[in-house]
Design a protein around this nucleic acid. Structure first.
Lengths: 135, 135
DNA sequence: CTGAATCATTCGAGCTGTGAACGATATGGA
DNA sequence: TCCATATCGTTCACAGCTCGAATGATTCAG
């Protein structure tokens, strides 16, 4: 079961990566956009802990998203060491397209399953995620 | 759902990797041992295609497993270019411990689920795997 | 017998993520 | 006020992983 879960997860991630590549980004960028979407503005340090990655990685991701016009960097007037990241309108558009991509991959993945099987699988994965993942 | 599947798969793989590290190997080694177990002896080339990796990777994996005494390399008398890999008794022991490890990770992952939920999840993953994975 | 193909192996290259330094700023205590 | 210490963002060099091309040995076809 671990192996099944492992390879299926890798398969799903690869397919998503392959599709968002057409948007000029990688899955990590999408994760950053999603993290910015709920909670709005946030310092890069906070985003690093929220995503569970090292701060230097946020720098690279934010650089590239900034070039795409998806995020803006603004110095926090309260603490001028902090760079506050915010989603732009373009960033929200990009995030929406990421969501569409995810749904397309979902449909692709569950192709051939009955609607009942599909929802049952989604429910099981959700409960497993709630038990295993920090939230 | 893609994201849930992706992160859960990565989580499962990481946990398995962390545990088999105590056996001195990595998940890829376990995959190679498992591939050798059904089908017995096989050339490295064949194993490469069977596992979907490049032949040069098999070389490194076989080197390390040979050092552990888990596999043996024997030139095929029919075609002296081929190196036939075979499991040793030690290799079978190692594979058995990998299986135990996988079960432990399974138990860990499904901790808190009812037996019914557990089997339902396993069944769903299996059907999804049969539909999506080449076999 | 010779040229092309196949197998295992080695080696170099690209990509990713990490950890250590650094400069700028902030904070707390003498 | 001043100084030591901590924090934030950034850069950079480095290790780990996998792939692809080149090599040598061997086999096969004509």
């Amino acid at each position: 079961m671990v192996f099944n879960l492992g390879v299926l997860g890798a398969l799903a991630s690869d397919r998503f990566a392959g599709r968002v590549e057409a948007l000029g980004i990688k899955p990590k960028h999408a994760a950053l956009l999603a993290a910015l979407d709920d909670g709005s503005a946030a310092s890069q340090q906070e985003l690093a802990t929220r995503l569970g990655v090292v701060p230097s990685l946020i720098v690279a991701l934010a650089d590239q998203l900034q070039e795409l016009g998806a995020v803006e960097r603004v110095r926090d007037p309260e603490d001028r060491r902090r760079q506050m990241l915010t989603l732009t309108a373009e960033g929200r558009r990009l995030l929406a397209r990421c969501a569409e991509t995810a749904e397309a991959v979902d449909a692709d993945l569950t192709d051939g399953l009955t609607p009942a099987q599909r929802t049952a699988l989604a429910r099981h994965l959700r409960t497993l995620g709630e038990r295993q993942l920090p939230h």
